[in-house]
């Protein structure tokens, strides 16, 4: 069963320089209890996708189309006040930078207890108990002592544990983790990944890992959604995607260093396109090694190619034969 079903989601930013088409046509599903990787380069729309699902896209951004079905309910049709009750309670988000996502002027206990109080209307000491419990789950040493401390008194890894606890406080069904390890030391990264993996398994939570690290995807995820310039390039389960990738995914995979192979690392030529004035046809065509005329002229549809594998590419079928 799908806990999340995003259909043709369109989120644009109305800036003075022009309309930034951050999400142009995003469709994917997330199966309940599954870990899904949301992959793409910086600027591909990963974070905006998570923000759109929670409906917290910052100004001047606006969701202008599509449907977001969560457990069958259309989140985009909800009133703001009803939507607020989903945030943190049913759907949570862990941010990339734990340092900037904790308010520097409030004690940890205060910040986290507020969330419990807001949703469950309990007394402060009851809320604090829940906070301590969740901090323990996130393996923060000395949770009782930490309540009165301020964010700057913790290391980066500890802060990310606090942020994970903040997201888990009310046992959400769906958790977005937006590059939760990008701002951490390598050794701490491994700890946080292990923690998230264990939590997902033990709590039976649905986890959407937003990352550009194919290693994390391979280690954690059952399914992958590959984004590029506001479009879904492909989605499917991880074996299929590693085996028969979309030209963009293929290029991404070639850019990952591997110890067991002696091939040269290749980078994807060019940059992610300007989203105010995106390329015609397939958004990836200017950087695609397989691009032909039709790729410049016609936008490829997101096609079901069998085995719950979805592809946005004119030439994918043809290329499979030659490979």
């Amino acid at each position: 069963m799908n806990i999340l079903d995003v259909q043709n989601l369109k989120t644009h930013f109305f800036t003075e320089a022009g309309v930034v088409k951050a999400l142009e046509d995003i469709s994917f599903t997330v199966e309940k209890g599954c870990t899904v990787g949301l992959v793409g380069e910086s600027g591909s729309g990963k974070s905006v996708t998570a923000q759109s699902v929670l409906r917290i896209v910052p100004k001047p951004g606006k969701i202008i189309g599509g449907k977001i079905l969560f457990d069958g309910e259309d989140l985009l049709a909800k009133k703001e006040d009803d939507m607020r009750k989903f945030r943190g309670k049913k759907i949570s988000l862990i941010f990339q930078d734990p340092t900037s996502s904790l308010n520097p002027l409030f004690a940890i206990g205060d910040q986290l207890a507020d969330i419990v109080i807001q949703h469950d209307r309990v007394k402060k000491d009851q809320a604090l108990e829940q906070v301590i419990k969740t901090l323990k789950v996130a393996r923060l040493p000395d949770p009782e002592q930490s309540l009165g401390q301020y964010p700057h008194q913790f290391s980066g890894g500890m802060k990310q544990r606090i942020c994970i606890a903040r997201a888990l406080l009310l046992n959400p069904q769906l958790l977005f983790a937006d590059e939760p390890t990008t701002n951490l030391d390598v050794t701490i990264q491994a700890q946080i990944i292990t923690l998230l993996k264990d939590l997902q398994r033990d709590l039976g939570m649905t986890l959407v890992m937003i990352t550009h690290d194919m290693g994390i995807v391979a280690e954690m995820c059952k399914c992958v959604v590959v984004l590029y310039a506001g479009h879904v390039m492909e989605s499917g389960d991880i074996e299929t995607i590693f085996e028969k990738p979309h030209p963009y995914t293929e290029a991404l995979l070639k850019a990952v260093p591997r110890l067991d192979q002696t091939r040269k690392l290749t980078s994807i030529p060019g940059n992610i396109p300007n989203l105010i004035d995106p390329p015609s046809g397939c958004v990836f065509h200017p950087r695609c090694q397989y691009a032909i005329n039709i790729c410049m002229e016609k936008v490829p549809p997101l096609e079901d190619v069998g085995g719950s594998h979805f592809i946005t590419c004119h030439r994918w079928r043809e290329l499979q034969g030659g490979r």
Partner: peptide
């Protein structure tokens, strides 16, 4: 980010504004 994080946790706009 901490304002967006508070919003993502379902804290009411009033509290975000006047407290955080």
């Amino acid at each position: 980010d901490y304002i967006m994080a508070a919003r993502a946790s379902g804290i009411s706009e009033r509290k975000i504004l006047y407290k955080y």
